[in-house]
Computed example of a mutant assay.
Amino acid sequence: MDLTMCGLLIERAEELARLYAEYGNWNDVKDVWFDERRSNRSTRGSAQKIYRVLTARFKNAPGALPNPSILPSILDTCQTTRDKAQVLYLYLIADDSLVQYVVHEYVARMAEGSPESLDFSNETLRDLLGHLEYADGGSFDYADSTVDRWCEGFRSVMRDIGVLDGQRSVAGTPPSIGDIPLLVAMDYSYEDSDNGWLTAPRGLLYLFQPEDRWEEQFDRAAKTDAWEYLDVRGGLTLRPSGDPGSWATDGGTR
C-alpha cells in the first residue's frame, strides 16, 4: 500500500506486462526497465517507485486474475483505454488493502441504496477512512496533504474506469463494461468465491454494477465462447465453457 501511488498508470503497467511476457522473469524485466529509463533520462527515484508499485500488483495478483505473462494479449484485445483500465483496476484492488477497503465500503453503500452512494468527494472519502481500524487497533492517521493526494489518486482511478466523468466531477455512476473486462471480472468472480458466486459476483461488484444489471452481464458473457448456461438439476446455472481464463489463451472470444 502506497498512499502516493494510487493511480493505475495504464501505459507503464502495460509496458511492464509486455516485458514480463517477453523475458519471463522479473530480474530481466527490472534490468531492461531501468536501462530504458536511463536512456530517456528519467529520474531513478521515480522509475524505482513506479516499478516497485506496479510489479507488486502483478506479483501479488491472485490466481483468479490472468497471469501477467498473458496480460498483454488480453490488453491487445481491449477496444478502448477504459477497457484496459477496468482490467488493471482489479489488480490494484487485489494488491492495495486501502483501495480494497474503500471500494468495499462503496459497494456496501450501493447495496443499501444509499443516496449519492457513489460520492467520491474528499469529505466522503475522509469519512470512510476515518472509520478504518487496523488489526493492531490503530486508526488511519496521515497528514492532510497526504490524504488529499490519495483522494485525488483514487478519483483518477474512478475516472479511468468510467465511474467519474471529467476532472472536476466527484459524483459517480455505474460504468459500462467492455467485453474483455467483463470476461476478466466474471472469471475473477467465479474463481474468487464459493458456489454462491452468482448472488455476489465480486468482479461486477468491484466495477460498481448494481444488482439489476447482473442478469444483463451474465447474458452477455453467455453469448461468448467463454461462458455458457447449463441446466443443472432442473435449473439454469452459468459456468465457464472451459477452464476459467482459457479464453485468453485460446485466441480470444466470439
Score class of each variant (00 low, 15 high):
residue 7 G to M: 00
residue 8 L to D: 08
residue 11 E to M: 10
residue 13 A to N: 01
residue 18 R to V: 09
residue 20 Y to S: 09
residue 20 Y to V: 11
residue 21 A to N: 14
residue 22 E to N: 08
residue 23 Y to L: 14
residue 26 W to N: 06
residue 28 D to L: 13
residue 32 V to W: 04
residue 33 W to Y: 13
residue 34 F to V: 06
residue 35 D to T: 01
residue 40 N to F: 08
residue 42 S to V: 14
residue 43 T to E: 13
residue 44 R to H: 12
residue 45 G to A: 15
residue 52 R to M: 06
residue 55 T to I: 08
residue 57 R to N: 11
residue 58 F to Q: 05
residue 60 N to G: 03
residue 68 P to D: 04
residue 71 L to K: 04
residue 72 P to S: 08
residue 74 I to C: 13
residue 80 T to Y: 02
residue 82 R to T: 07
residue 83 D to C: 07
residue 83 D to R: 03
residue 83 D to E: 14
residue 86 Q to F: 03
residue 87 V to G: 00
residue 92 L to Y: 11
residue 93 I to M: 10
residue 94 A to C: 04
residue 97 S to A: 07
residue 99 V to P: 04
residue 100 Q to M: 13
residue 101 Y to W: 13
residue 101 Y to G: 03
residue 101 Y to L: 05
residue 103 V to P: 00
residue 103 V to C: 02
residue 104 H to R: 13
residue 105 E to L: 10
residue 106 Y to M: 10
residue 108 A to R: 15
residue 111 A to N: 05
residue 114 S to G: 01
residue 114 S to Y: 03
residue 115 P to N: 01
residue 115 P to W: 07
residue 116 E to T: 12
residue 117 S to H: 14
residue 119 D to G: 07
residue 121 S to I: 14
residue 123 E to M: 14
residue 123 E to A: 15
residue 124 T to N: 13
residue 131 H to F: 02
residue 131 H to W: 02
residue 133 E to G: 02
residue 135 A to N: 11
residue 137 G to P: 06
residue 138 G to H: 00
residue 140 F to H: 11
residue 141 D to F: 08
residue 142 Y to R: 12
residue 143 A to E: 13
residue 143 A to N: 10
residue 147 V to A: 05
residue 150 W to D: 07
residue 153 G to H: 06
residue 161 I to C: 01
residue 163 V to R: 10
residue 163 V to D: 07
residue 163 V to P: 10
residue 168 R to G: 14
residue 169 S to D: 13
residue 172 G to S: 09
residue 181 P to Q: 01
residue 184 V to K: 03
residue 185 A to T: 04
residue 186 M to L: 09
residue 197 W to A: 07
residue 199 T to C: 01
residue 202 R to K: 15
residue 203 G to E: 10
residue 205 L to N: 03
residue 206 Y to A: 04
residue 208 F to T: 00
residue 213 R to F: 09
residue 216 E to K: 06
residue 218 F to G: 06
residue 219 D to T: 15
residue 224 T to F: 02
residue 224 T to Y: 02
residue 226 A to I: 10
residue 229 Y to S: 01
residue 229 Y to A: 06
residue 230 L to K: 15
residue 231 D to C: 01
residue 232 V to D: 05
residue 241 S to K: 09
residue 241 S to E: 08
residue 243 D to Q: 12
residue 247 W to C: 00
residue 248 A to W: 03
